[in-house]
């Protein structure tokens, strides 16, 4: 669900534009956590394929 990551980042940018920087930081932190999860997911999937 990589589309969600972009959607969250776009949302964070809009929140910053609407003068809600702390909410924007929270959304960014959520995006980062989800991104690391998907990096781990896709990295290990690739590794299985290569092995």
């Amino acid at each position: 669900m990589l589309a969600l990551l972009f959607a969250l980042l776009a949302g964070a940018t809009v929140l910053a534009w609407k003068d809600r920087p702390y909410m924007a930081y929270a959304v960014f932190a959520t995006t980062l956590a989800l991104s690391i999860y998907w990096l781990k997911f896709h990295s290990t999937t690739q590794l299985t394929v290569v092995l």
Binding site: L2, L5, F6, L9, T31, L32, S35, W38, L39
Partner: peptide, 9 residues
């Protein structure tokens, strides 16, 4: 796509 996410960050 995750590299694009990095650029968006």
């Amino acid at each position: 796509n995750l590299q694009r996410v990095g650029l968006a960050m």
